[in-house]
Design a protein around this nucleic acid. Structure first.
Length: 476
RNA sequence: CGGGGCGUAGCGCAGCCUGGUAGCGCAUCUGCUUUGGGAGCAGAGGGUCGGUGGUUCGAAUCCACUCGCCCCGACCA
């Protein structure tokens, strides 16, 4: 039967779409730019939510929910913020059959409504810090959309915290950045670069924007999460003040931070191959699939029984699926579960039964290992851990191999076209140089590392003095 | 918004140039044989050809308008 997915080398962008549609992670909706997240895609998001939510709570955050609709006037209160978001907002002008007195914005992000509420709730330094997160949908009217990476409506979490001092807010923003970084590596098996955005890439209304940048297989960078130190910008716009110990009034210092369903797209692009998507064991909705192989009725009975017993044994510790369908062949099942990204497959046929074993096959490279039926759970646990670790290691090697130094502009341009990836290059700090590089090469400064990049050099574009290098890349 | 492509059965497509009873593959259903990498044979069901209007004896096919989607660019998580 014909391959259902366009090979990556032929057309990476088609491959991405094919992999998602064919694996049934998502589908296009009747509304342009929107997508339906199907059970496979959604359960990945649930896995992401579960793990991140636990980490947020461990660090003292609580969940809450703020409404979808925001009065238009709220958005206008912070000048930079409104300039940044107004063009991409969906606006509700009618309700209940009548034109509304004040139009309502469908939230593109919730800073404004949240700070309006914080202004009511915060009176004293004793009320601080406020550490709230919400899991929500937001809408941004993007011109060009792509499944999971950029859709008109998407799901995310947005944390919004308020603190008594600038130092506390800064500490919070960095703490979250570190949570994100570790999550990306430990759970998603995607290594990232972290750092701070330049002014031009900063969140509208933030003092500083910290970010995670990952590298996809087509050598383009993907922003995987952001954490903003908002300073007192929103506090001033919304009059969020508190009384200090000395009785003076001060504006709070705040942060906001988020990751979105884009992470699901990152998983696809980081780990998928021409056979479909491929998920790291810790996030895989199904970690182990059991596939029986039989010929005679007698074999069918014995082998399906062995599968049932194994599934029973593994069920407590792993997310397991026993594929006992009789209407499709084993070969069909192999392909289907590979397409859907299951990291480990256990085959059992007459030959395995004879040796009292399962044949384990790793999704990431199809490597086969016999696993004795006794102590199966232990063997499976070890294999899954091994796969998780190797997927991360593979990602690390990929990131390392595709990060280069760029000292000379023409050489940089050539290397961008030839190899892509990240480039460490000196930048004088001028917005003009940054803009010209973007116009001339389509590469942007992905982030300025927080440490380890101090070094005297010459700006890639103008040759002026530079004291630190930054990461450049073409990005999604 | 600019450039390109596509709307014909659930999915993928052919047919359109040169108008004349709507086809192929996959999927689905039934039966038998199969099962260690997408099984075989036989049979069956399924389509107002994106929409509207026009030309014509006759339109999937020609013309006009329109709607939608995908890809590439400018904006962005």
């Amino acid at each position: 039967m014909a391959k259902v997915i366009t090979p990556r080398q032929e057309d990476y962008s088609r491959w991405y779409t094919d992999a998602i549609i064919q694996s049934q992670m998502a589908d296009y909706s009747p509304v342009k730019g929107c997508m339906v997240i199907r059970p496979l895609g959604y359960s990945l998001w649930e896995g992401i939510q579960k793990e991140l939510d636990a980490r947020f709570k461990e660090t003292g955050h609580q969940n809450a929910y703020f409404p979808l609709f925001i009065p238009e006037s709220f958005l206008r209160k912070e000048a930079e913020h409104v300039a940044g978001f107004a063009p991409e907002c969906a606006v509700v002008t009618h309700g209940g059959g009548k034109e509304l007195e004040e139009a309502l914005i469908v939230r593109p992000t919730s800073e404004t409504i949240i700070y309006a509420m914080y202004a009511k709730w915060i009176r004293s330094y004793r009320d601080l810090p406020v550490l709230i997160n919400q899991w929500a949908n937001v809408v941004r009217w993007e011109m060009r959309t792509r499944l999971f990476l950029r859709t008109t409506e998407f799901l995310w979490q947005e944390g919004h915290t308020a603190h008594a001092t600038e130092a506390e807010a800064e500490e919070e923003a960095l703490k979250i950045l570190e949570i994100y970084r570790r999550f990306a590596e430990e759970q998603m098996a995607i290594p990232v670069y972290t750092g701070v955005k330049t002014d031009s890439e900063r969140f509208a209304g933030a003092l500083r924007t910290y970010c995670l940048e990952a590298l996809m297989q087509d050598k383009k960078a993907l922003q995987a999460g952001t954490s903003h130190n908002l300073g007192q910008n929103f506090a001033k716009a919304f009059e969020v003040k508190f009384q200090t110990k000395d009785g003076t009034w001060e504006h709070v210092w705040s942060t906001s931070w988020g990751v979105s369903t884009r992470l699901v797209g990152a998983l696809v692009m980081a780990h998928g191959d021409d056979n479909g998507v491929s998920f790291p064991p810790r996030l895989a909705p199904i970690q182990v699939v059991l596939v029986p192989i039989w010929k005679s009725d007698e074999e069918r009975l014995r082998i399906s029984e062995a599968v049932r017993l194994a599934a029973e044994e593994l069920k407590g510790a792993f997310r397991v699926k026993a594929d006992l369908r009789e209407e499709v062949s084993p070969g069909w099942k192999f392909n289907e579960w590979e397409l859907k990204g299951v990291p480990l497959r256990l085959e059992i046929g007459p030959r395995d039964l004879e040796k009292d074993q399962f044949t384990a096959v790793r999704r990431m490279d199809r490597r086969k290992t016999p696993l004795p039926r006794s102590g199966l759970a232990g063997g499976v646990a070890a294999l899954l851990e091994e796969i998780q670790a190797e997927m991360l290691e593979k990602g690390r090697a990929f990131l390392r191999d595709n990060t280069r130094d760029a000292r000379e502009y023409e050489e940089f341009k050539r290397a961008l076209d030839e190899s892509g990836g990240f480039f460490r290059a000196h930048w004088c700090g001028s917005a003009d140089c940054e803009r010209l590089i973007k116009e001339e090469t389509k590469a942007t400064i992905r982030c300025i590392p927080l440490e380890g990049n101090r070094e005297d050099g010459r700006c890639l574009r103008c040759g002026g003095a530079s004291r630190r290098w930054v990461y450049f890349a073409r990005a999604y």
